[in-house]
Amino acid sequence: MTTAHETAVPGNGAGRRPPEAEVAVAVDRISKVFLPKNNVPVPAMVDVSLRIRRKEVLAILGPSGCGKSTLLRILGGLDTQYRGTVTWAQARQEHGRLNAATVFQQDSTLPWMTVAQNIGLGLSGLRLDAAERKERIDRYSALVGLAAFRSAYPHELSGGMKQRAAIARALACEPRVLLMDEPLAALDAQTRLVMQAELQALWRRTESTVVYVTHDIEEAITLADRIVVMSARPGRIKSERRTDIHLDGADGADPVALRAHPGFAPLARDLWADLAQEVGDAL
């Protein structure tokens, strides 16, 4: 799937280098058109280009229908009908790693599988040997705090625990880029705050590169190193900001206390100024 897009990069030889050092994946001039039943095409995204750098957390903010989830689906290999190129730093799939692993917004655990089996399913494309597979399942279920629930079924878990299992499944593939599509949106407000701190600590520990789609300005500031705002349909990149206001990744870091940071409110205001007009246009 990914190799098809890589051929579009000119001058690729054996020693393939990413177009820019430390870039994990490059998205170049991606356009996407939906064709609804009435055959009137709807442009969802126009000429979106992005560089996702190693170990950064990139948040994508945007109004509903701006194509932010579509962009994530393209990166995750779930949508293959688009124009433009996606170039991964590593050409071939490295042993034991996926280029991208997705955490979905809705509950995506398979109810007929235990937590361990759910994580194992994510690993099934990696051809790990049994010992390595078991080690990964143990390590990542422990990392998200589900060590004691490895043989529990999703219907025995709370919403937050199910989402943690889905996060463990994605992390266990040790993806070059971790794709998160509003992973906390379906959780209640308090669980969401706890999970924000947990995610930050997890990424720090696993040195993850993350693309994080959200509609929540505060969540974007709390979690991201860089925040991209997308315009209303058809989606374009409207603004891009670096930020160094985020949780320090220590256990017990407090996302509510972070809001007292002097830079927090101005940044939130700027982001909202970018977004407000787009949200109005999207209505």
Partner: peptide
């Protein structure tokens, strides 16, 4: 979503049929 998980994680087809689609 179940099949999307299989696609997103590049689960082999045989595993997808037996462990995802049929269940």
């Amino acid at each position: 979503i179940y099949r999307e998980v299989a696609t997103a994680f590049q689960v082999p087809k045989r595993v997808e049929y037996l462990r995802v689609i049929i269940p």
